[in-house]
Amino acid sequence: MLHSFIDILRRALDEEMARDAAVHLLGEDVAAGGAFGVTRGLAQKHGATRVRNTPISEAAITGLATGAALCGLRPVLEIMFIDFATLAMDCLVNQTAKYRYMSGGQLAVPLVVRTQAGAAGGAAAQHSQSLEAWFIHVPGLVVVAPSSPVEAYGLLKSAIRLGEPVLFIEHKRLYTMKEELADDAPLPPIGQARIARAGSDVTLIAYSAMVHSALEAAQTLADSGISSEVIDLRTLLPLDMATIAASVSRTHRAVIAHEAVLNGGFGAEIAARVGSELFDELDAPVQRVGCPFAPIPFAPDLERALLPGSDDIVRAVRQLPGLG
């Protein structure tokens, strides 16, 4: 049976709530299902105490969730759109991320912050951003960005069980994607990337929805005899550098693709680490594919024109020496 991204998130939350009484859901409208219906029906099943609607105040509710986590619960907080995580930044950066360190390891914040990112369907400049780089900059946080329903199912469960503050970034464009879920599939560990497609000529590093653009690009390139390996990072922080290193050491070329703007994007961090840690393995400069440095337009045609896609990845690969 096929499950949509939204249904599968609900199932993961449902199962974790059944498994662990400490798991609570917090967020705007979550008792009614939330903006995308992820939590629909869970309040009825697990009770209004464990699925609580909150005021529209990201700063306050992030503090609430952090406090609950400090006190022993395992809250899952939904921040409706990562664009408004800006309002929660002070708590996340200065409190949530710091407790374990500043308490000398005596305190932990087992909090999962679910949030939606990415452009989909003309949500305009304030509801379409990919702001993961800001959080990857903060020691003490874990940042996860699944690429598919099945990945989201396992990663959300692993995130809830991790016992650390996790920013769980869901791409709105993936919400309608459907996949079959194996009952006995092992949960993917946090901090481990996966090889989404094996190849030998170039490593395409992507996460979230861009994994699909990378896979599409790999197929296009395969038709002209270029073999691409696609890495789905899954966890952005901590970065699984070992998987990247093993792949780039085979292919000697790397292209990083993300939907966020290139300027200060996470691709720059990966490129820098590949450049310094794998210098002797490189046969070409590391290339990045990302959004132009501009706000996401409202007009759907303009949005499509701006967003990076498989064509951009193919172009970046073909610019590499020996792959033209």
Binding site: H252, D280, E281, L282, D283, A284
Partner: peptide, 14 residues
Amino acid sequence: RAAGRIRSSPVARK
């Protein structure tokens, strides 16, 4: 070469 420096990729050099 004309500029007196041989360009090479790191892995080629290795």
